[in-house]
Design a binder for these strands. Structure first.
Lengths: 71, 71
DNA sequence: TTGACATGTCAAGCAGGCTTTACAAAAGAT
DNA sequence: ATCTTTTGTAAAGCCTGCTTGACATGTCAA
């Protein structure tokens, strides 16, 4: 699962530690998610989306088709 | 974390087994998510949202404020 | 009443998400 | 050159997500 967490974080000038603090998780968790080692749990994905004011699908991408109705 | 999975499923007349099949998970997983025993992983949440043509946030609700800008 | 299906739940086991502690290396500031 | 910050990574351990197999209950049809 890809994500733009690093971009959102650096846009704001935050370190991984600072982001981890705001999300109430460990710095290693932030690093692991940014480097694609694993996906966050659904609750953590909600926290991330809320912090950045975006939808979960705007931040994470599982690569499969969204199957939008073909007009 | 609350969700409206059961409503979405029964709207379509599907059994838990039928939904499990479409999501490629076990029937017990569907049941556990519907009955609130645990939250799905993020990838599974994506599959569910895709199957029902909705955003993850439309189906799951972690109960915390969405912090929409106060106009 | 029997059989089929739907749901709920339990147990054991494996994989994944997250923690703490710790260390190495790169970059910046002075 | 040294100090500080940032990032990456590793190991051990805990809890959660998901699996299979199994069993109990309820409903519906025949």
């Amino acid at each position: 699962m890809k994500n733009i967490l690093r971009a959102l974080r650096t846009e704001r000038g935050w370190s991984q530690a600072e982001l981890a603090d705001r999300l109430d998780v460990s710095r290693q968790s932030v690093n692991a998610i940014e480097t694609g080692k694993y996906d966050p749990s659904l609750p953590l994905a909600f926290s991330i989306a809320r912090l950045f004011g975006r939808g979960i699908e705007d931040i994470f991408d599982d690569g499969l088709d969204t199957a939008t109705a073909a007009e």
